[in-house]
Design a protein around this nucleic acid. Structure first.
Lengths: 145, 145
DNA sequence: TTTATATCGGATTAAAATATCCGATTAACT
DNA sequence: AGTTAATCGGATATTTTAATCCGATATAAA
């Protein structure tokens, strides 16, 4: 279930940036950190990582900031943000920490977990930014508190 | 998905102890650490915690060691071991790290996650030690590698 | 009663995750 | 061109988690 703090911040930041991009506005680091209630310097690090992975775009200098393309807002999936920040540990890692847990050499809870894991991964693979934005834009959900 | 390393070791240790207890044998720290491939000193700390929570029993001195009652083997659920070591973060924590994420004030992925979380919790609440032991005893699953 | 063999428990250390700092770079505006 | 406002990127600091160390305690057996 549990993602790293960096990943939590990264997803929230992506959503705020997407929201601003829909309004044709760039989001500055300062605004982002404030709107998602995350430390500014740490957010900066995470945003850089997202830029490197092509999740978001950045422009330096005055009037600069971060943005997300309409295409990404439509097509980018939650799992891609997680991969950019936490890598593929989510899919790869055995629940009990075995190095070679697999269908042919399973851990004692492999069978129980595999269904949960499949549904979870499936959800992450089909949940896109746009979907997450709807509840945000409707004021039903929020990014801080 | 992801449990702390302490919790991974703790579950594996509990299973080995249960397995030995079915054979009317006490498990020593040394054996446990070796059989679950975890550091001895760290395992000791985790086992103490499990004893304090009544998950396992311990006896000091020569011929001492750890054991699990038949009743616990039958009735103890996976979630109880997780609670003993990691607390209730699993149930309580919001995926995006919001402090007050709930049905009435959700995060943008609350609705997607709640089904997964429910199934996951449900599984942890009904998976008992005995269930996990069956695949182990049949040689289908293992506790290390 | 002494000795050997266990776990207990508190203090310390090591490693990883989280977070900060600051100079370099980039680009808009005067 | 110079100034200012922004991100970039590498080094450092802090906090949490993981792991170790060692003396105290308990108990079985000689």
């Amino acid at each position: 279930m549990i993602l790293s703090k960096a990943c939590e911040h990264g997803i929230r930041a992506s959503l705020y940036i997407a929201q601003q991009s829909e309004l044709e506005e760039r989001a500055s680091l300062k605004d982002i950190a404030h709107e998602i209630d995350a430390p500014e310097a740490f957010s900066a690090k995470i945003l850089q990582e997202l830029v490197r992975h092509g999740i978001i775009n950045s422009i330096q200098g005055p009037k600069g900031g971060f943005s997300m393309s309409k295409k990404s807002i439509r097509e980018l999936k939650l799992i891609q943000i997680i991969h950019a920040i936490d890598g593929d540990a989510f899919e790869k890692k055995c629940v009990l920490g075995l190095k070679k847990c697999s269908e042919t050499s399973p851990c004692p809870v492999h069978d129980q977990f595999k269904h949960i894991k499949k549904d979870y991964l499936n959800m992450l693979q089909k949940t896109n930014i746009q979907k997450m934005l709807t509840s945000l834009n409707d004021g039903i959900s929020c990014l801080k508190l």
